[in-house]
Amino acid sequence: MKPYVSFEQISQVFSRPDGSSLMALKDVSFDIGRHEFVAVVGPSGCGKSTLLRLLSGLLRPTRGQVTLFGQPVTEPRDEVGIVFQKPTLLPWLNALENVVFPVRHKTGRVSRADYERARELIEMVGLGDFCDRMPGELSGGMQQRLGIARALLLDPEVLLMDEPFSALDALSREEMGFELLRIWNERPKTVLFITHSITEAVLLSDRVLVMSERPGTLVENIEIDLPRPRTAASIQEERFHEYSSQIRDLIYRPHYAA
């Protein structure tokens, strides 16, 4: 049986404006199981966002193949939802309209059931009272929650998150992490979660993929064997620190790992 998601020997080469070419990913292979939560960490520019865009179907790999549900990814699919680094809500729509926006944008009309669903999702991310607020009136954390609700509207099987909490302060960042785990628990999904924060990666995921500097290769694949549900107490555990320092060593001294 084919794996749920698989990257098979992916290489990605971009051409620069000056005509030279740039190798962003080199021979990257890994699988993701159904309802698995996988985090990707690595230095800036190592191709993390590129991985995500490959799986979303927005980008075709130069070499290799990405498959989803056993089929090659050739174009964007409804089963995939994306949460961006910045919430990028539409400033002229209120919270509710922002969350139903994917349906309006895709089909041109929004049914009562869609609104119903959007309200449920907004309730779930804890913003039930803010349906008719404009994005400008909401804090960064609230906006990002709406971004998550928007990504969940079409009930995607796979959730792609590109440094979704990096614009938040440390406190709301941690809170949002636990919030995400709660949502993931309520509606299990396959998650590919990109982050710069080692702590966040270990705290949230089942598995951490560590990448090297450009050209990005996969350095290590670390199973995080910590009990769920994870809480603030998980951070105190000794194994948590072992995982964190292992990853830190891999990122800062990549030549030892190779």
Partner: peptide
């Protein structure tokens, strides 16, 4: 990208 991912 959101628009493109929705194939709008």
């Amino acid at each position: 990208e959101l628009s493109r991912s929705l194939k709008a």
